[in-house]
Simulated assay, not measured.
Amino acid sequence: MQRRLPVHYVLVLLVCLLAACATPSSPSTPTPPPALQGDTLSGRLLFSRDDGIWLWEGRTARRLINPPVTQPAFNPTGNQIACIVLHAGASDLVITDTAGAMLAQLTRNEPAAPPGSIERVYSAKWAFYPTWLPDGSGVLVSAQIAPPVGDPPADAPLAIVRYDVNGRQQVVFSDANAHLGKSVVLPSGDFIVVRTPLGSDGQQQLFRISNNQATPLPGAPTPAYDPALSPDGTWLVFAVGINGGSDLYAMPANGGSPIRLTDIGSARSPAFAPDGKTLAFLAIPPGGRGFDLYLAEVAIAGDTLQLSPPRRLSTDFAINADGGLTWAR
């Protein structure tokens, strides 16, 4: 039976095949800030658009890193950024400083074969969804560990791979029956990962990886994706696919009863503020032309997590939902 990438991976691959090869750099000219809603954001928040990675700080946003880059992730101290550089048919994991200047390239996935050639398709590799380890010593990514299969080659095996900042790499966990996507690391050292069973009808699931064993996260709905962990490691917020859209849910990080947080129909990509008191996420407002940024206060009482009514910060800014959000002091 032919195995295929999940739909969201296929879309990423098609976009990347059209992208020009480049490395991140600081923009040469200032970029105007987006339209705001009179709210101020504490700390620093990164997000992706088609024109690169943007930094939102205070009441303004500006482009920090030129395209083609996506999926930024602040390290635990907020002084480095892991992100994904898109090539024509491949992607790489890089580390930059907070000004967007390259510090290290941790993968070398772009092949020598010319763009558009079948040789390039079979020799290129992919990396997605960087997540820093709690001590900042390395980054977990969803990375391709073997050549693609199929005719056409629609399946590139994706496992969780650790890349240390000194360049060493190690496959942390692989699953012959599924692709592994975005992950978050628990205080115990276990991690929660988005697992998509192979096959065209596979749905994304939240699994816990412990002692090299993967088990479904107890109580987590399906399909579920975009996991975000609270700063104290006790709560997990994630998106759940509902009737062709999505909304945010919360549950204890070790599993439990899911709590619905939003009723927007398009909410995705949650990220906690460093103090855990605010949640940022993306959603398409009624009549909107793409994803905008929302904020809501977090209230925790016993075994319940709730959000205040969300307030919208940006206007028609077309943020890349799969690029995620990352928030630092």
Rank of each mutant, 00 (worst) to 15 (best):
Gly138Leu: 03
Ser269Lys: 01
Leu180Pro: 00
Pro309Met: 04
Gly265His: 10
Gln203Glu: 12
Leu5Ala: 12
Pro227Val: 08
Ala328Ile: 06
Arg312Tyr: 00
Arg59Ser: 15
Ile264Pro: 04
Thr77Gln: 13
Glu119Asp: 10
Leu313Glu: 03
Ala239His: 05
Val184Phe: 03
Thr29Ile: 08
Ala112Ile: 14
Pro270Asn: 14
Pro72Cys: 07
Ser210Trp: 01
Ser137Cys: 07
Phe272Cys: 00
Ile242Glu: 11
Pro309Tyr: 04
Leu248Val: 00
Arg162Trp: 10
Ala224Trp: 08
Gly244Arg: 01
Ala178Tyr: 11
Leu158Arg: 06
Met1Glu: 08
Gln105Asn: 12
Val240Leu: 07
Ala267Gln: 06
Val94Pro: 11
Thr31Ile: 08
Thr131Gln: 10
His8Tyr: 13
Gly233Cys: 04
Val165Thr: 15
Gln204Lys: 11
Ala101Glu: 15
Thr196Ala: 07
Leu282Ala: 13
Ile319Phe: 10
Phe238Val: 05
Pro227His: 04
Val171Thr: 15
Ala146Pro: 05
Ala301Arg: 15
Asp151Asn: 11
Leu186Arg: 12
Lys125Gln: 13
Arg49Leu: 07
Ala101Cys: 12
Ser230Met: 03
Thr315Phe: 13
Arg44Glu: 00
Leu206Ser: 04
Gly52Gln: 11
Ser266Lys: 05
Asp50Thr: 09
Leu307Asp: 00
Thr29Pro: 05
Asp151Gly: 05
Gln205Val: 07
Ile53Trp: 14
Thr29Lys: 12
Ala19His: 07
Leu279Gly: 09
Leu133Cys: 04
Pro115Ser: 05
Asp303Val: 03
Gly202Thr: 07
Gly138Trp: 05
His8Gln: 10
Ala19Thr: 03
Pro231Arg: 02
Gly265Ala: 07
Leu45Asn: 07
Gly288Trp: 15
Thr315Pro: 02
Ala296Ser: 13
Ala321His: 10
Val184His: 08
Gly100Met: 12
Cys83Glu: 09
Gln306Ala: 15
Pro147Lys: 06
Tyr225Asn: 04
Tyr225Arg: 06
Ala20Lys: 13
Asp97Glu: 13
Pro231Tyr: 06
Val165Asp: 07
Pro286Cys: 11
Val237His: 04
Leu305Tyr: 10
Gly43Met: 00
Asn243His: 06
Ala99Asp: 15
Gln306Ile: 11
Gln203Met: 09
Leu140Pro: 04
Ala214Thr: 09
Asn75Pro: 06
Tyr163Ala: 00
Arg311His: 13
Leu46Arg: 00
Ala61Gln: 09
Ser257Val: 15
Gly233Leu: 04
Ala127Gln: 08
Glu110His: 13
Gly189Trp: 11
Gly244Ala: 10
Ser269Tyr: 00
Leu293Glu: 03
Phe272Ala: 00
Gly256Val: 03
Ala35Lys: 09
Ser26Ala: 15
Val121His: 05
Asp50Val: 06
Val139Gln: 01
Pro227Arg: 06
Arg63Gly: 03
Val7Met: 08
Gly324Asp: 11
Pro270Lys: 04
Ala178Thr: 11
Gly181Cys: 12
Asp263Trp: 09
Gln105Cys: 04
Leu261Ala: 01
Asn75Gln: 09
Gly181Pro: 13
Asn254His: 10
Arg312Ala: 06
Thr131Glu: 08
Val194Asp: 00
Val240Asp: 02
Trp132Ile: 00
